[in-house]
């Protein structure tokens, strides 16, 4: 659905001053995939979305979006993608219905009224359809902007910070809606600072800061950055048990934290029974066994924590 090769955007701020916003982005997003594009402010995420929606042209590199080459079939790209911009940008003096009607016509939607009604009802805004958008809360505007992005049933949806600045209730509603879109098999390219949200919603994550640093499923990123770790809660720990456990095959590391043992291994499915057997034979009281799950935030911080200069994104 999205294929980019060495996509680069350099902004010329003034003569002799170039700011690279996106450098050599090579990426492949499959149809039906929810792709999370994560990075700090000014990393070039919005610039990437703007390039992929043909709002701005890349400096170098190529891309195909929905099968259309960027720079050659820009109208076709715009017709096939929907975008939720960072700021909803609605016409505040016009009603919600009028706002969506305008966009439905610009997207050449056949059943304008039907589509507008469908999405206003779907996002719970139908009762407020005749009210000016200026009277809407931030959450309602965001929902309306999501309606706008979906009116023409795009094959690919770009969401730039979909829950940014929303209260927990509104954010939950938007997240649930994204999950619903995901279940419909829509392809979604999403920028977010909410790492839990990305972890929950996205099939794959791209960690980005001007360059694409890592791209994989969040589970694979966890294994790559921290390995797989088993946590065993015991009533008490006898230090004599540790050499016995260390001798087991595929145990990479063992550490003790109070009455818990943290064991690093690549193969917990096969190792766990052996560990428990060894501990029980040695007289240990095993209370709980589980896998230590590092958060995406830890991976993000480790990746972005390196002292890289922040770039101001135009």
């Amino acid at each position: 659905m999205i294929e980019t090769e060495n996509l680069t955007k350099i902004f010329k701020i003034k003569k002799g001053v170039d700011i690279p916003a996106v450098v050599d982005l090579t990426l492949n997003v499959q149809e039906g995939e929810v792709f999370g594009f994560l990075g700090p402010n000014g990393a070039g995420k919005t610039t990437t979305i703007r390039m992929l929606t043909s709002l701005i042209a890349p400096t170098t590199g190529t891309a195909r979006v929905c099968g259309y080459p960027l720079g050659e079939s820009d109208q076709d790209i715009r017709r096939n993608v929907g975008i939720l911009t960072e700021n909803p940008g609605m016409y505040e003096r016009l009603s919600a219905f009028k706002n969506l009607t305008i966009y439905a016509k610009l997207y050449d939607v056949e059943d304008v009224e039907g589509q507008v009604r469908k999405y206003l009802q779907m996002l719970g805004l139908w009762e407020r359809r005749d009210d000016p958008v200026g009277s809407f809360s931030k959450g309602m505007r965001q929902k309306l902007a999501i309606c706008r992005a979906l009116l023409h049933e795009p094959r690919l949806l770009f969401l730039d910070e979909p829950t940014s600045g929303l209260d927990p209730e509104a954010a939950l509603l938007v997240r649930s809606f994204i999950e619903e879109l995901r279940s419909q098999g829509r392809t979604i390219f999403m920028c977010t600072h909410n790492l839990n949200e990305a972890d929950r919603l996205c099939d794959r994550i791209g960690l980005f800061r001007t360059h694409l640093i890592e791209v994989d499923t969040s589970q694979n990123l966890r294994v790559k950055f921290f390995g797989r770790k088993i946590v065993i809660h015991l009533r008490t720990v006898d230090p004599a048990w540790l050499p016995q456990l260390q001798a087991l095959p595929s145990v990479q590391d063992i550490s003790q934290v109070e009455s818990k043992l943290v064991i690093t291994t690549e193969d917990p499915e096969n190792l766990n029974p052996q560990i428990i057997r060894t501990l029980v034979t040695a007289g240990a009281d095993v209370q709980f066994v589980g896998e230590l799950r590092h958060s995406l935030e830890e991976i993000y911080m480790q990746t972005m924590g390196e002292n890289q200069p922040e770039v101001t994104e135009p």
């Binding site: 929606t53 709002l55 109208q75 715009r78 017709r79 993608v81 975008i83 911009t85 700021n87 909803p88 940008g89 609605m90 016409y91 505040e92 966009y103 610009l106 997207y107 050449d108 902007a145 706008r148």
Partner: peptide
């Protein structure tokens, strides 16, 4: 000023 230009330019309008 209302930031409505970006979504407008993202439509297939020339």
């Amino acid at each position: 000023t209302t930031r409505s230009l970006e979504p407008l330019l993202a439509t297939p309008i020339s």
